[in-house]
Design a protein around this nucleic acid. Sequence first.
DNA 1: CTGTCTGTACTTTTT
DNA 2: GTACAGACAG
Length: 638
Amino acid sequence: MSTIAPTSSPLLEGLNPQQREAVLYRGPALLIVAGAGSGKTRVLTHRIAGLLESREAWPSQILAITFTNKAAGEMRERVRHLVGTAAEGMWISTFHSACVRILRREAEQFGYSRNFTIYDSGDSRALIKRIIKDLEADVLGFTVASTAARISKLKNELADVESYARQANFNDPNEVMFVEIFRQYSRALSSANAFDFDDLISQTVYLFRAFPHVAAAYQKRFRHILVDEYQDTNHAQYSLIRELTKSPAELEPGLLAATEPASLTVVGDSDQSIYAFRGADIRNIVEFERDFPGAKVILLEQNYRSTQNILSAANSVISNNFDRKDKKLWTADGDGEKIVGYTGYSGHDEAQFVADEIQALRDKGVAYHDMAVFYRTNSQTRALEEIFIRSAVPYRIIGGTKFYERAEIKDAMAYLIAVANPADTLAVRRILNTPKRGIGPATETQLATFAEKNEITFRDSLRHAKELGLGPKVTGAITALSDLLDEAAALTERPPTAPGDGVPEVLSLLISKGGLLDALRASRDPQDEARAENVEELVAVTKEFQRNNPEGTLLDFLTEVSLVAAADDLDDQTGSVSLMTLHTAKGLEFEAVFLTGVEEDLLPHRMSAGEPGAPRRSAGCSTWASPARASDSSSPWR
DNA sequence: CTGTCTGTACTTTTT
DNA sequence: GTACAGACAG
């Protein structure tokens, strides 16, 4: 079936022929191979708008998936611009948000309850750390980082403990230990009514496979599925898409009116695959045509973002990759200025060069917010910050140590989680003695043992503090905390008394009565003043949340926070230079960019040595910057 | 049993 | 520059 929309539609204006074709094509499967800066978001949003405008789909039948919340927000905004309020009914979200939405609705089907907690990588690591310590696995050489990576990798491959154990080599003591850690980790998660990041995807796939009637409901609902950054999908995400694009009738034979499978559009570019470390499997895009027979492939090679010099440099690097489909980006915008290379003597020297160049560009009329500095690792910011402060270059760091990763914020969040999901023992344990109330590890262990013996949650063991024969001071502290959590829980169960109340009210109660704020304010440590301010900032965040979502529950707030990434708040274009990793920079545009630390073992990073496409040797502290003053050789370099 | 102080080993990229 | 573990005093 190929319906062709009128070619005079305003949706096609200003699009090149390939872009038009990508917007108009109708069929079961479409792969858009979109080079960097080739206008793929434009194509996707116009394609969605076209489906709505021609009445081929209702908003609720569209599922658009991106990798970051920022990309999702931008896409929603641009679709809204094209079609207005119809944009509200669509699911435009990240893989993780979409899965949470599904899981919250269906969790009861498989023994979870809908108020589950989402563990970020920090939480997972804390849990793994405790398990390794309990099992004394560290003497066998188990580290938190490697174990966490191993478990994550398995989950991305859709392996669970039992399936892994079935093929494990039990003569290898290392393997036996790993299975035990994996098993305890999985048990801890499910008894805490919690999912880690990887579970969000893999458990949704499991849900669809184990409960065909649930899968059928979503297969029938979503008629058009669009996936961005397809080259960065891992096996679990790929499987999710495959489940959603099955025909509902395949799974539910009793269904009389066999519904056609949803149409699938994926956009990607194997040259831009940067998430292999997280399990991204480039085969998903390379083998798309085999997976979806009859799929149409459209190439977008015209670049609208960069000058020819930059593209030529990029092409000459990328062309060294092996097993690569030939693709050459080009632009109609001319050669532009040369790329500048600079080799410094040290990180500081390099930072100084960047700062000087920024000021020079600024004098030539380039605004600070149109400039960006990229680096490979977050730790590289230190030298840059130091010099930028001294040189009076206004800057802001995107990503890095995030607000929500600060200890005091995690503490405050743990209070909220303990209220929303009392089964989350990790959260309850975290607040047990934060702020200090005289409940030490010994008391904690007693509570945990009591809980285990009586088969109740750790949270509920707090209610039985009197039965443990502890000192009166400790008993009183535990009971007070338990009562406070009950009081806060009661608050969430009644409608807020004043508009804007709700989550802020609960949080304020917990941090004031819980003593977190007072403890920080009373502290002699000068850093605690800033920490108290951060906690107050979190209250402001909840108020902002409640204003934007008057009906938003505590659970909604916790979900939003768990899934929000650092790059998401880039929007306010203040007059500052942006500093970020290469990974967060993906898909963004600036007038001038600096690429720092182009150096042995750093770019490419030494941890990636040995992966296919081995790193080449280089030396010194190098910066590549663009654009720079014009020069007239035919090479893109200066 | 808990809080504070001092020494040691880090630092890939993200949802 | 920093986060975390171990030692010791209250």
